[in-house]
């Protein structure tokens, strides 16, 4: 198991390769459908949010307010990433992202942007909302909550040992491409 802690430097990211099991500690920003479209359309990123050398997490968490008025994430697994394929590559390059966490993998444009700009795609376990919520130690802030609603807002989360697998690295390799072409060949033998 590889430990990846902030700051998420280019050097650390470049050392990761497809198939690596990684635990991430540091800050993650959630961002999913609404945020990606908004940023891609030229929407302004809240000034407190710094995505340079950052990691974005495709996630719409369940968040409740406790009696003291503090946010508490009670479920936080990844959402399907491929919906962000039209936007992700440009956002990686524009904001200097070093990591994208989601599920299901992404396409060739994102893979190319990962290579060009030094970024990796981390696959979290879909549906594992409780295991992943336990790794979230604190909600530091939330942005665009009114505009987009809770699942689509940008949540700034402090995580410890958040488990993921590298399925697209910064060297042009994709586990998703490999598994797809292998399974497609296996299926054609069985039709």
């Amino acid at each position: 198991m590889i430990q990846l802690s902030a700051p998420f430097t280019l050097e650390k990211i470049a050392a990761l390769k497809v198939g690596d099991a990684v635990e991430i500690s540091g800050i993650l920003y959630t961002g999913r459908d609404a945020v990606h479209k908004y940023l891609h359309d030229g929407g302004e990123l809240p000034k407190e949010v710094n995505l340079q050398d950052g990691i974005i997490y495709h996630c719409g968490p369940v968040v409740l307010k406790d009696e003291q008025g503090n946010w508490k994430v009670t479920a936080a697994g990844p959402t399907t990433s491929i919906r962000e394929e039209p936007y992700q590559g440009d956002i990686i390059k524009q904001f200097g992202l070093r990591g994208v966490i989601g599920k299901g993998g992404m396409g060739s444009r994102t893979l190319a942007a990962c290579k060009e700009s030094g970024c990796v795609y981390f696959h979290a376990i879909g549906g594992a909302a409780q295991v992943l919520a336990e790794c979230i130690k604190r909600v530091r802030n939330v942005y665009l909550l009114e505009k987009f609603g809770s699942p689509e807002a940008i949540w700034e989360l402090e995580v410890e040992r958040f488990p993921v697998v590298v399925t697209m690295d910064s060297h042009g390799n994709s586990l998703h491409e490999e598994v797809f072409s292998r399974s497609q060949a296996e299926l054609s033998k069985r039709l």
Binding site: V62, A75, A76, T79, G126
Partner: peptide, 9 residues
């Protein structure tokens, strides 16, 4: 914990 298995309920 009696909490959602998956956040997408």
């Amino acid at each position: 914990k009696s909490q959602p298995i998956c956040q997408d309920t």
